[in-house]
Design a protein around this nucleic acid. Structure first.
Length: 812
DNA sequence: TTTTTGCGGGG
DNA sequence: GTGTACGCAAAAA
């Protein structure tokens, strides 16, 4: 003890702790041999800037400030020290006072006091979280290798604690992380989860060379990974101890912010068990409204949150573990009757094996998903400098913001404050014109060429130097305005945001270049994706009401340029004799008619010759066939709703047809898909029409199996509180009468049966319906016709044609 | 058309 | 906690 030593470690997590007289940062990390340690940094103080009114007597002002006492809780918030410093605000120099304090929580109080101080004009950078401030100022990246000198100190902790005298960052980072995935199963006889009432039955853990399912119902099993606890309380304690024993670098769950951890916390409170999972024995905390489960020193990753926010490239519409795992891993959840778990638990414990397997399999899927997704999170973390815990949870606007904040130092520019509540409200209420959408003429088309601008908004920002820093400069007023506005941006000096964005675009070009010779390099792919995600978020960021660098003028100018360029392409295409079918934001759909693709290619090249900066029009593809439909009422073309067939890729591109959703029967979805396929791939409208006629005939003659007729709907509120009793509510009430509780969140599956009277009296749960006993009329008129009507009317069939009585014999 | 509510994910 | 952190779509008004 007491001897000066050196340690090197990779930074995994960072936690702030207010010590008696000083703020401390606990840097949790692992050494190159994988050992976990905690390095305490006490040499960094929180601060903000204050701009004095006159440059009169600085020394006197400093003394005055140092003597200030601002009431704070039981004591006083005081200023620890003051330094003089130069910074820029929108390019103009400011000489400022850097005000240090001994606690981050003093900062808002001191700031408020100085705002009211007669000798202080304005305060800056008072709303940057202490941890980010530290990472930014010390230029430390998460997962970076750090060297520290200091000494080991005794402290209550699950890992050795080291008090640092100095910390030096390096450029080296690690991506080799030991992860542990977990999942719980709970008692519930309905869809409604009641952690206050119903216990946790199982907890699965899956790590490298480690798998375990904890449960507390003893039954005979051959599964070597099942471990029994006396009761739920002992199981929770065992879970805690296993984490302490294994100390993974990251703990991974799926919807664990919103479900598993809140559930665990509630159950632990009931049993009076401390959920002191933190490496410093601090409790698991659940953030209130944006609910995130946080463990000191052990970053908790909820994959669902990252996937929902930042992995929108997935095809899937829903983000259930099953859907996401089958798309990313090609593997599904284990099929068990989860509804029966509680009954089995109560009465047939010998059948619990399948649920233990199910539980472990979910943890395993989560583990595998983490292996795929972590490279993306790690790349993003390195790019914008946010720790993995935050990368997991922030929106793309905050990614952009942190990226910019980190780079502000090099420009010596001040970081603007977050908007006040009032500004926020004001910004929310402002709207402006968005992208251009050209209304399509409904119809069936052949040879549809699609052009689109590659990264339209990012390239507009860089090509036209759009940013709050270049807005209305004094030098370029007479050099031209943004189309359809009175605004201009500097043409002489590079704006900070456009130059950062340009750097990103160039970096991505380099990464893509490297990928050409190393196609399967997942890390490079993740890097390219991360840069793309960040670049594409700049425009949205400028228009985001909560942004520090909010600039309505910039956002509005970007969309204005966007409309300008797309309209230009449309006009020139028409000049060149092409017919425009449709256009939306950054893409134009052209009817090639008898023209060759070479003509279109040439046209695109001509356009590209005149585009500034990185702007570029891509010839995306030529689609063999395409359908654009009309809006429900009227003859106008529906926007953002079309289907195209790419012969070269042998793939349908279907957009905006919304029947791929709930409360449509499987049959309706199937029929819609099939009709589009026949029309686009086979170009046989008679066959499509006959197909639908055949389906209608089959419905009438009761040949369709019941399971395709099931409609599922979500129950929104308690069954009693519905005033309008729709079919789903009626069915839910019947189920409840039969002893199956129904509440918000329950999914009701029902079939409309034949007979007279109101729908709600004819809706039945599928198990009560005999094969063939569905209401043919209802399914034809409310499911099939709406699904295909707009499509078939494009090729000349009306609703009446579809519903004409089935006398022709060729159909049967 | 504008405002309010409530789901998503999880068993 | 360098406070006051969702976002969208359907239902209701």
């Amino acid at each position: 003890m007491g001897e000066k030593v050196e340690v090197s470690f990779y930074l995994l997590d960072i936690v702030f702790k207010q010590k008696e007289n000083r703020p401390a940062l606990c840097l949790y990390g692992k050494t190159s041999s994988g050992k976990k340690i905690c390095i305490v940094e006490e040499n960094f103080l929180p601060y903000f800037y204050a701009e004095p009114i006159e440059i009169e007597d600085r020394e006197r002002l400093k003394k005055e400030l140092l003597a200030l006492k601002v009431p704070f809780k039981e004591g006083d918030a005081v200023i620890h020290s003051v330094e003089e410093i130069e910074k820029k605000l929108l390019g103009s120099k400011k000489s400022l006072l850097k005000i240090f304090a001994l606690a981050p929580s003093y900062i808002p109080f001191l700031k408020r006091e100085l705002d009211a101080h007669p000798k202080i004009k304005k305060c800056y950078e008072f709303d940057i979280s202490f941890i980010y401030r530290y990472l930014i100022d010390k230029n430390i990246l998460p997962l970076a290798l750090l060297h520290a000198t200091g000494e080991w100190i005794p402290e209550k902790s699950k890992v050795p604690v080291f008090l640092a005298k100095s910390i030096t960052p390096t450029e080296e980072t690690t991506s080799d992380l030991q992860i542990m995935a977990f999942d719980i199963e709970t008692y519930s006889k309905t869809k409604v989860f009641q952690p206050e009432k119903n216990p946790i039955l199982m907890i699965a853990l899956y790590g490298k060379d480690f798998r375990k399912v904890l449960t507390w119902k003893k039954y005979s099993t051959q599964l070597d990974y099942v471990e029994f606890a006396e009761n739920e309380k002992e199981m929770l304690i065992r879970f805690k101890d296993l984490l302490k024993e294994h100390l993974p670098d990251l703990l991974i769950g799926y919807h664990s912010d919103g479900f598993d951890f809140p559930y665990i916390k509630t159950r632990a409170e009931i049993h009076n068990v401390d959920m002191d999972l933190g490496l410093d024995y601090s409790d698991l905390t659940i953030g209130r409204s944006s609910s995130s489960a946080c463990i000191a020193g052990l970053p908790h990753i909820d994959l669902l949150r990252f996937i929902r926010h930042n992995l929108r490239t997935l095809e899937t519409e829903t983000f259930t573990l099953n859907a996401v795992a089958s798309e990313i891993l090609g593997e599904k959840k284990k099929e068990v009757d989860i509804d029966a778990l509680s009954l089995v638990w109560d009465g047939e414990a010998e059948k619990l094996d399948q649920y233990c397997e199910y539980n472990l399999h979910d943890a395993h899927l989560t583990y595998q998903l983490a292996q795929r997704i972590l490279p993306h999170m790690i790349e993003l973390s390195g790019l914008v400098g946010l720790p993995l815990f935050d990368i997991n949870r922030v929106s793309s606007s905050r990614l952009v913001e942190n990226f910019i904040m980190r780079r502000m130092g090099q420009f010596k520019e001040l970081i603007p404050a977050k908007p006040s509540y009032h500004e926020n409200q004001e910004r929310r209420s402002l709207t402006y014109e968005g992208a251009y959408v050209h209304e399509p003429k409904p119809g069936f088309y052949r040879n549809v060429a699609v052009f689109d601008f590659r990264s339209l908004y990012p390239t507009i920002i860089t090509a036209h130097n759009i940013s709050p820093y270049t807005f209305h400069c004094s030098c370029c007023k007479d050099k031209g305005l943004v189309p359809d506005t009175q605004y201009w941006f500097c043409r002489e000096k590079d704006g900070i945001l456009p130059s950062l964005l340009e750097e990103l675009i160039l970096r991505r070009i380099r990464v893509k270049e490297m990928l050409k010779s190393d196609k399967n390099n997942l890390l490079l792919q993740a890097r390219s994706e991360s840069i793309k995600l960040l670049s594409n978020s700049f425009y949205g960021y400028l228009a985001f009401f909560g942004a520090r660098w909010y600039s309505l003028e910039s956002a509005l100018s970007i969309t204005s340029y966007g409309r300008h360029y797309i309209s230009q392409v449309i006009a020139k295409a028409q000049e060149a004799g092409f017919d425009i079918i449709y256009a939306d934001t950054d893409s134009v759909f052209i009817n090639l008619n008898e023209r060759k693709t070479e003509d279109a290619s040439e046209f695109v090249q001509e356009i590209n010759k005149k585009l500034p900066g990185f702007m570029e029009l891509d010839y995306e593809d030529t689609y063999k066939t395409g359908i654009f439909v009309a809006v429900k009422k009227g003859h106008a073309g529906a926007k953002k709703k079309y289907a195209l067939f790419s012969e070269s890729r042998n793939k349908l591109k279907i957009r905006g047809f919304e029947t791929i959703r709930k409360n449509w029967s499987k049959l309706a979805k199937e029929v819609q898909q099939k009709v589009l396929e026949i029309l686009l791939k086979e170009e046989n409208k008679e066959k499509a029409f006959d197909y639908v006629r055949k389906i209608i005939f089959d419905i009438q003659t009761k040949k369709i199996p019941l399971k395709k007729m099931i409609i599922s709907t979500h129950i929104q509120k308690s069954i009693e509180s519905y005033e309008a009793v729709g079919p789903h509510v009626a069915v839910a009430r019947r189920m409840q009468e039969k002893g199956i509780p129904m509440g918000p969140g329950s999914i009701v599956k029902f079939i409309i049966t034949s007979g007279e009277g109101m729908l709600r009296n004819r809706a039945r749960p599928p198990e009560e319906v005999k094969e063939g006993d569905y209401d043919a009329e209802y399914y034809i008129n409310n499911q099939i016709v709406p699904a295909v009507n707009s499509i078939l009317s494009v090729v000349g069939y009306t609703e009446e044609d579809l519903l004409k009585s089935n006398e022709q014999s060729d159909l049967s």
